[in-house]
Amino acid sequence: MHAFRALLDRTLGDVTDVEAALHEFGRQFAAEIAHSPERSAVMRLLIAEAAHFPALLAQTAKAGSAQQALADRLAELAGRGLLDVADPMEAAEFLGLLVTGRVNNRSWYGAVQFADAEIEALAASGVRMFLRVYGSR
């Protein structure tokens, strides 16, 4: 959690250009996800064993502190008029999914490695989609 808060501070701290800041957040977040063999192994194990151990799903659902931290940051940006966010938790969930979902799917949760340029392109397209919905109007 400390590493994620540091990522938020680095990328979404003192924001003047929300699009550039979100792109940098997305790029760094997706790269960290893609380049963490430990996280990838845990995710594959959770997916494989979730049906046998439903308590695992309950534990991961409770562990939303990173999502809450992102939601708080998005709410701050909305308060400054840089985003149009009615539900910060929902927006945080969508942003996380949009910048990491395709990376996870295409890499089979880290089983297949691909270049940083491809990770960056996937994250950038996720940010573009996010801004179409949550960009300030």
Score class of each variant (00 low, 15 high):
A3N: 08
F4T: 04
R5C: 07
L7T: 07
D9E: 14
R10H: 04
T11N: 05
V15L: 12
V18F: 11
V18Q: 04
E19K: 13
A21Q: 07
L22V: 04
F25W: 05
F29T: 04
I33P: 01
I33A: 06
H35F: 09
H35M: 09
S36W: 08
S36Q: 05
E38T: 03
V42N: 01
L45N: 08
L46R: 08
L46D: 03
A48E: 13
E49Y: 09
A50N: 02
H52V: 07
H52F: 14
F53D: 05
A55L: 14
L56P: 01
L57M: 11
A58H: 00
Q59C: 00
A63K: 06
A63S: 10
S65I: 12
Q67F: 05
D72E: 15
D72T: 14
L77W: 08
A78P: 00
G79Y: 10
L82M: 12
L82I: 06
L83C: 06
L83V: 06
D87S: 13
D87E: 15
A92Q: 14
E93M: 15
L97T: 03
T100H: 05
G101Q: 03
R102P: 02
V103N: 02
R106C: 01
S107N: 03
S107T: 03
G110K: 00
V112Q: 00
A117I: 07
E118H: 04
E118Q: 12
E118A: 12
E120P: 04
E120T: 15
A121H: 09
A121K: 10
S125G: 05
G126R: 01
G126I: 03
V127A: 11
R132W: 14
R132L: 14
V133I: 15
S136A: 15
R137D: 06
